[in-house]
Nucleic acid binder design. Structure first.
Lengths: 129, 129
DNA sequence: AGTATCGTACGATGACTGTCGTACGTCAAG
DNA sequence: CTTGACGTACGACAGTCATCGTACGATACT
């Protein structure tokens, strides 16, 4: 019973993961320094979040030195995908298509952005056979 | 200070809302009957969720009869949009475009689905000035 | 009228989140 | 060696969620 359900990072955890994705393996102090610019929390709060994420296997830790080095155990893409699937499941009856349609219909995306999306879509249409 | 933060429906609340969106205004008993097919919970749990959602203004209630009639105060589209924006904010730095690209790049959407998306995208491109 | 059924209100509980503060060990500088 | 700065562990706590059970009023059946 080590992993019952597939857990997803919480809001606060995501903010920490973001730092790790950008900065790469870091000490708690380093993470805290960067994180502080976005939101003010105590050092031990960041530490706690990292400990929790370690329990959940979201981060790895290298404790060979006194100041442990934490690194993300999930890629950003992977995490985005998981969270998208979760949302699709919960709110779009599992349909990614519906999710995309809704996102497009309400997005204030620029023409350039839409073009970019259309382009990727064209490729995707040809590739996936 | 009635509404501090914009609240979003939780997972359990969404399941109830889904029933309301499909079935329209209903009594707790009716909602419970339908909801039961998906997940087994006690009648009072459904009632509790509806009471909480009423406090949060997610549902309206007509208590003119003994059995109160609940109805959704948010449309499904509205809710989908809000949750998408929330996810975009939390995980895609606010970029709906990035969200869509990610969703497309990992979706196992069929050709027909992709075509449909592309179509809507073409319209959208022309419409939005 | 008396009782069983249906309905709502609401307290209690356990899990999880996010946040701190304190305890306590280590390491370097005086 | 002593002490102060730094590091991790961890208990505490308040808020939210999801779930029940119990209390109690209203309705309907006999």
């Amino acid at each position: 019973m080590s992993k019952k359900v597939e857990r997803l990072p919480t809001a606060a955890e995501l903010k920490i993961l973001k730092v790790l994705w950008e900065a790469g393996p870091s000490t708690v102090r380093e993470i805290h320094e960067i994180h502080k610019k976005e939101k003010t929390v105590r050092y031990t709060t960041v530490l706690r979040l990292l400990q929790n994420m370690h329990d959940k296997n979201f981060v790895r830790r290298d404790d060979s030195e006194r100041s442990h080095i934490f690194s993300a155990n999930l890629t950003e893409e992977e995490t985005q995908t998981k969270l998208l699937r979760d949302l699709a499941e919960r709110v779009f009856s599992g349909s990614t298509k519906q999710l995309v349609l809704r996102a497009l219909s309400t997005s204030r995306a620029s023409k350039a952005e839409l073009a970019e999306i259309r382009e990727l879509l064209a490729e995707s249409t040809h590739e996936s056979g």
